[in-house]
């Protein structure tokens, strides 16, 4: 029994230590952001890696999610004769919840895992040590650009997801199911608030971008520098990021809406 307790305690102490290390890492990361002012090209490169490369999957998913939402809401609302409200519901669901959340999950799977694997491999092949020995701070040159790029790219992708999703909703709701196009857009227009809904959705995206990038980069930099270590770090990135997104989404929704 005492053996079990000991292991249990040691396990959680280990977790706590990692959390502490991750927090210190974050301070370091934020402190290194200022150096990007002198090197915007590094940021552009990472925006390409995390933003542009995730764009196609986000747009396609957004389109389908919008279409499915439209179909489901239509089928329910038609019973009440309120089918012209489809637009409102599709838009609110996308802008407030699914846009940032699904984009966050896709981003963690596509860009976050890639970041972890890349940094992990840089560690395993001594590139990070190499930079340090060249008197180059990896926080400034490797971590900070990736962090900022993820932070910026996720809300942008979420906005594109929502916009495309609304179009997908239009496609199914109006073109296929025959909701009046005018009603679809005008109902949406009068019920969705820019400051309350769209901006809060963007804030969610920013929070998720911050957390996912932080987790991805920390897991990469903290991994055991072997192929096994990199692969388990990549898995952890996806798992922790997804959990963090879903948990934070609940908190943010409770605070915002």
């Amino acid at each position: 029994m005492s053996n079990f307790l000991q292991k249990f305690g040691a396990y959680w102490l280990g977790k706590l230590e990692r959390l502490g290390r991750a927090t210190l890492f974050l301070f370091h990361l934020v402190a290194a952001l200022a150096s990007l002012v002198k090197r915007p090209s590094l940021l552009v490169k990472q925006l390409h890696a995390s933003g542009v490369m995730t764009l196609s999957i986000v747009l396609v998913s957004g389109l389908f999610v919008g279409m499915v939402l439209s179909l489901q809401f239509y089928n329910t609302l038609i019973d009440f004769g309120q089918e012209e409200r489809v637009g409102t519901l599709v838009a609110l669901t996308l802008v407030r919840e699914l846009g940032p959340v699904v984009t966050g999950l896709l981003f963690a799977g596509r860009a976050g895992s890639a970041m972890t694997a890349e940094i992990g491999l840089m560690k395993a092949t001594e590139q990070l040590s190499g930079l340090e020995m060249m008197a180059v701070d990896p926080f400034k040159r490797v971590f900070a650009p990736r962090f900022l790029a993820g932070f910026i790219a996720l809300p942008m992708l979420a906005a594109m997801f929502s916009a495309v999703g609304v179009m997908g909703g239009h496609l199914v709701g109006v073109e296929v199911l025959g909701v009046d196009a005018n009603a679809y857009w005008s109902q949406m227009h009068s019920s969705v608030s820019f400051t309350h809904d769209v901006c809060n959705g963007l804030v969610k995206g920013l929070v998720f971008g911050f957390v996912v990038s932080w987790i991805s980069i920390f897991e990469g930099a903290d991994c055991i520098p072997t192929s096994e270590g990199v692969s388990s770090a990549t898995t952890r990135t996806v798992v922790y990021s997804s959990l963090a997104i879903l948990g934070l989404d609940f908190l943010l929704t409770a605070v915002m809406f």
Binding site: L121, M122, E126, Q127, G130, E132, M133, M134
Partner: peptide, 15 residues
Amino acid sequence: RKRMGMLFQSGALLT
């Protein structure tokens, strides 16, 4: 460190 060079086992070139 600017006055020291280090050659890593794998070369540690930036890929």
